[in-house]
Amino acid sequence: MSEKLWGGRFSQSTDELVEDFNASIDVDKRLYESDIEGSIAHCRMMAEQSMITREEAEILIQGLGKVKEKIKNQEMVFSAALEDIHMHIEDALSLESGDAARKLHTGRSRNDQVALDVRLYLKKETHVIIALLEDFSKAIVDMAESHLDTVMPGYTHLQRAQPVLFSHHLMAYYEMFKRDIQRFRDSLSRTDVMPLGSAALAGTTY
């Protein structure tokens, strides 16, 4: 699968400068787990809908599992020539699953695939961020409880103003991070949307 998906109209190979400019692998390689997770779900759907056989689906799923382990173990060599993580996975899958790999994109476009990958990745990372903020907020509360009688100057317009408790000063930051946690939780409802089926623009014939 060394030929580019968009290269059908070109008679010469892509200039190295263009490949470097076009490549996003240094950034989107972090999406590999989400990309493979989405592809496995897509394989199962195709088998359920008789778009591919169950045997083909199993071959693809096993192949995707091997590719995932290869990336996880840092055994995959990334190249600008393959542009992004999606092409790297498809190229590796063709070696693991043979001709069955050509059916992976049946009823699916790169457009909705990328949209799905980003949403799956953001959902996971958002939960990680929320957990970190909750741990940090607890640390703030613990410190505030140990400074219930500590007095400090409060500031307004960069000048010392009223005396305040250091614990109250800390709890002001607790409230700020609490609002951040609420924002992240609110964003999850907008992230948790299924884009598959939209294909390249207005749906698919499957």
Rank of each mutant, 00 (worst) to 15 (best):
S2K: 12
K4Q: 07
W6G: 01
W6P: 03
G7S: 08
Q12N: 06
S13A: 09
S13Y: 02
T14N: 00
T14Q: 04
L17H: 00
L17P: 06
R30Y: 11
R30K: 14
L31G: 02
Y32M: 09
Y32A: 05
I36E: 03
E37D: 08
S39A: 14
I40M: 12
Q49E: 14
Q49D: 11
S50W: 09
M51I: 15
M51L: 15
I52W: 03
E55V: 08
E56F: 00
E58V: 03
I59C: 03
I59A: 03
G63C: 03
L64E: 06
K66W: 01
K68P: 02
E69H: 10
K70C: 05
K72S: 13
F78R: 04
F78K: 01
E83V: 01
M87R: 00
H88M: 09
L93Q: 06
S97E: 03
R108Y: 07
N111K: 11
V114P: 04
A115H: 03
D117N: 14
D117H: 09
V118G: 05
Y121D: 06
E125T: 09
V128N: 13
I129Q: 06
I129M: 14
I129D: 00
I130V: 15
L133M: 13
D135Q: 15
D135I: 10
S137Y: 05
K138Q: 15
D142P: 02
E145W: 12
D149V: 03
T150W: 00
V151L: 15
Y155V: 00
Y155W: 13
T156I: 07
Q159T: 05
Q159L: 11
R160V: 13
H169K: 01
L170H: 04
M171V: 09
A172C: 14
E175D: 15
D180I: 09
Q182N: 12
F184Y: 15
R190N: 13
S198K: 06
S198W: 00
A202N: 02
A202I: 01
G203E: 05
T205C: 12
